[in-house]
Simulated assay, not measured.
Amino acid sequence: MRVTITSRIFAPEPAAAAYRLSALATALADAGHEVTVLTTRTPAALGRAEAARVRGSGRVRVRRAPVLRDAAGQVRGYVPYLSFDVPLFFRLLFAPRADRIVTEPPPTTGFVVRLAAALRRTPYVYYAADVWSDAAESTGAPRPVVRFVRWLERRALRGAAEVIAVTDGVAERVRELGGHDRVALVPNGVDTEIFTPDGPRLSGPPTAVYAGTTSEWQGADVFVRAMPAVLAAIPDARLVFVGQGSARAELERLASGLAREAIEFRDPVPAAEAATALRSARVGLVSLQPGIGYDFAVPTKLFAAAACGTPVLFAGTGASVAVIESGGIGRAVDHDVADVAGALMAALASEPSPLERRRTAEWVRQHASIAATGAKAALIVERAQ
């Protein structure tokens, strides 16, 4: 079977979408299928060597095309999305015919794939990591924008032969918007061969690491606001952000006024470097702004930290709390500055023991390995009609 995967982001870019689609591509190739990925050129910050390593895969062909990126190197915003989506329509239309197409949000891409798939009479699978129209509404986007995004998203979902949802909450919402029950649950996972307690570690002061996207709806500012209280108790404590996101500029501005010397911002790095940062930390940080429609989410950064043996501190409510408590892989507190400060102090006060790190990492290996989730997603792609 010939499978085409379309996404504006793919390995080696350090993002949940890139990880899960890479795992899916690998699982399909391992099952004997021909896989072609239509994606974008990697940002310059990742380096040509990393991009070449992925392109050189003999089992998965990765076809990259130019795209508009913002100043931070991300494909974010409607014009950058269209700079990928419009050429994608013709790439699909004139490429050798695939037996299946797999696509990711944004809904503009899903809509373009639906059009091209209809013309080529090819079933497609929509990999729904979240619900973009709900996210747009929760962040205060203008009503006409929300209505248009929802219109696109409904059509992308309704035309899909199968929809893969990453949480129960997403699955429920997708059924409502798509108007069908062709929805399968495949939770996010993490690469437990890269994110592992074994490997390089950096020495230094007690550090908390937030590794991944910083968007407004994640509310990572709560960690920045907590740092003055933390520093009063642990003067050499450090907070490190690794990655980009729409909220980064505001986080940097806030940090400069509260704890300039104790908070560091690093650009996105390959997964192995992110793993080193997490492995070297005493706690990995994850947050979700409560009450704006994302309580159902379980961010992949939660599993990435725990897979490195680093306990997680989650600020927020919802599904992530249940995951952390069931696995015993960290602590969840309210999205409140005082609560977060107290939990940070406790986490930074002492280094997790080797036994604790092993146990935390083993739980992720058993319950959230991306190899297992990739294989499960591959079965859904195979059965799509």
Rank of each mutant, 00 (worst) to 15 (best):
T26I: 09
L251K: 12
L92A: 05
H335R: 05
W217F: 11
R76Y: 15
I194S: 03
A25R: 08
V145T: 13
L93V: 06
A160P: 06
V60R: 06
A297E: 07
R121E: 05
A371V: 13
R282Y: 13
H367W: 09
R182P: 06
Y78I: 03
V283S: 05
A271D: 10
P206W: 09
G32W: 05
S350M: 04
G32A: 09
A277V: 11
A255T: 00
I5A: 04
F84L: 04
P187F: 12
L348Q: 00
T373H: 02
V67S: 03
E104K: 03
A11H: 06
L302G: 00
L202A: 10
A372I: 11
V321P: 01
V224K: 00
D130Q: 12
D181C: 04
I329M: 12
G219F: 02
V125Y: 00
L344G: 11
A17Q: 09
H335K: 09
R63I: 10
V35S: 00
R64C: 11
D30A: 15
A71F: 04
A338F: 09
G374T: 12
P187W: 01
G189L: 11
R182M: 00
P352F: 10
F94L: 15
S350P: 01
D70E: 12
D267G: 06
D295E: 14
V163S: 05
A332F: 10
A45C: 07
P144T: 07
V240T: 10
G169W: 00
M345E: 15
S256P: 05
D334N: 13
R365F: 02
A220L: 07
A17G: 15
V242K: 01
S215Q: 05
W363Q: 03
D30M: 06
A45G: 08
A281V: 01
E261T: 08
A171T: 13
R121S: 12
Q366M: 14
E356R: 13
R365W: 01
G309A: 03
R97F: 10
G374V: 09
Y81L: 03
A184D: 04
A208N: 08
R201Y: 00
G58L: 08
A135D: 10
L24C: 07
V240W: 08
I263W: 02
G110W: 01
I380V: 15
P290H: 14
L24F: 07
D198G: 06
T310Y: 08
A161F: 02
A11D: 14
T26E: 15
S57C: 08
A349S: 15
L285Q: 03
A44K: 12
K376F: 05
R201Q: 13
A306H: 06
A372G: 05
Y124L: 04
G257S: 07
P197Y: 05
A255Q: 04
A343M: 12
G58K: 04
F223A: 09
R282E: 02
R76T: 11
G189Y: 06
E153W: 00
E325H: 05
A372Q: 15
P197C: 10
V283R: 01
G58F: 08
D334F: 04
D236M: 06
D295M: 09
P270Q: 01
S256N: 15
P205A: 12
R121H: 10
A371E: 12
V170G: 03
R383L: 12
G257D: 13
V112F: 15
T360W: 05
A368Y: 06
L288Q: 03
G243W: 02
A247I: 07
T167G: 04
A249N: 12
A72K: 09
L379S: 12
L313S: 11
R114F: 06
L355H: 09
